[in-house]
Design a protein around this nucleic acid. Sequence first.
RNA 1: UGCCCGAUGGUGUAACGGUAGCACAGCAGAUUCUGAAUCUGCUUGUCAUAGUUCAAAUCUAUGUCGGGCAACCA
Length: 598
Amino acid sequence: MTNLPAEPAATSDFIRDIVAADLASGKHTHIHTRFPPEPNGYLHIGHAKSICLNFGIARQFGGTCNLRMDDTNPTKEDIEYVESIQADVHWLIGGWADDRLGLKPKGKTPDILTVKGQADFQLPAVTAGARDGLEPFYASDYFDQIYDYAVQLIRAGHAFVCDLSLEDMEKFRGTPDRPGTNSPFRERSVAENLDLFARMKAGEFPDGARTLRSKIDMASPNIWLRDPVIYRIRHVEHHHTGGKWCLYPMYDFAHCLSDYIEGITHSICTLEFEVHRPLYDWILNSLGLPRSLPRQIEFARLNLGYTVMSKRKLMQLVEEKLVTGWDDPRLPTISGLRRRGVPASALRTFAATIGVTKFNALTDVAVLEHAIRTELNATSQRRLAVLRPLKVVLTNLAAGEVIEFEAVNNPEDPAAGTRKIPFTRELYIEQEDFMEVAPPKYFRLRPGGDVRLKYACIIHCDEIVKDATGQVVEVRCTADLESRAGGVNAARKVKGTIHWVSAAQSVAAEVRLYDRLFTEEEPEQGGRDFKSVLNAHSLEVVQARLEPSLADAPAETRYQFERLGYFWPDPKDSQPGRPVFARTITLKDTWVKVAGKA
RNA sequence: UGCCCGAUGGUGUAACGGUAGCACAGCAGAUUCUGAAUCUGCUUGUCAUAGUUCAAAUCUAUGUCGGGCAACCA
């Protein structure tokens, strides 16, 4: 039996309260959320919070959560990102909420149904079974329908074609504390608007020549209600629709309608969209749609200490090669965390722990680290590995002698069993586990001192050997073989227990030690350039010695290297027989505190 | 200085007019063949002022502080 941390319990927060109330009141009988990233970058841990929220709600209330590419701006988007997004989402929700994932048949576009005597666009989700033949939703699959809605808006007198240039539009918009003024094109006839809009679609005008604008209120204190642009001309290829369009809807127009078409009940987004909500509602209400409308609810995005979270900054780190790629294990990207060995379940636990509110918070990385350690402590097998080897010679052992000691695989999980580790005359211990001049309370090896070798026996340091520079290069010891488990001196107590490997019977391996990417908790505090506080030691590569059982460690297997931390084979660079390990996270270390105080 | 949103220990989050709780971090101790894990205990909090009420973290008003909004980005 394992002490697996319980799957995050059904939690409650202000959004779940709304959902529960809507179910209780009968407003909805089925809950439908969505996760709608724009494919213009890789997903990060902030998105993970949103994914856990949206899929978590679907899971808790027996609903569905659609994965949708919010791809209305072809100039910034790319197929590479739609692929990485899918991989990241599948990984994060796998085994937890993948049965709630809403997809659609490949190539399918909305159906036209008649609801309450009205034509109505709908695109239902498929959640059951395999993903064969299915794909995510794409806002760009609704371009025909969204165009149709725009025509309806024009017909109803709620939208007009505007010829104002970008600069002029800015002038007419006013400022937050001063109302704007109406566009001179605001009173064009419906017929003229219809004609112009059709010609915009036909490609008769260059980029920026005209826009389609909603007709709301140029004097509104809310800038987003001052006749916002809902369509702009862009003569560019789209990664999903190819060359079909040269006219693309803006986020505000496309998003609410995409939600509606998919039958979304709760459209959850981050705080910066709060001021857009009146526009979201205005569009939906202006169209007189026959089905119940989605409701937008906003929550605070995640801010985590010692990292940066925006796609723009992450992109900068990647493009300037300050990291090795989007999946660099030091990055807070989902693919980076995955490559680092962080389990998806730990990310979910983290998301559940931090909660959901409208308060703009800065979350302590310790919370993330705790979630990772808790999960890994319960599930990973222990192994011995020496990161920075120091040779130990046991003078009372014969050169060819090999003793096999039994080691427990996981003290938290007896079912994990045991394994044998070879013990020989020449060993390696960690350099920092020996000190020639030791401070008080140092429990490890020192001249004339004793220490227990984990799973083996107690050794006594008789002699040290130094090189020409005075560096200790070898420690000569006597082993008390009777202090082994089952021996007469088995009960002998010494203050310290350290890890070790056999010199001859260990394998060499590259081990990558990751640390936080920035030296400051808030890299951009006070407007400073985040790149000026990059941690120069965020990656350290060492040539380590591992116990023999690690020679061909299977992929995807997480270990605790005792007294050091949690490690796993790097998914890209580790080869059978030539392992490369990545450190996911260190163990908590109270000794550094004790030593630091001294 | 226009509009919108927010404020509970060091950090994050609960309490939905009725005993301010939980987690992380920190500190102290127990235990330990991982200075890990585990266990025990402890420190620290309702932004301010006024009001409503038998009773306010919760309701009201004002103020203070913080965040967001003036892309043909999302």
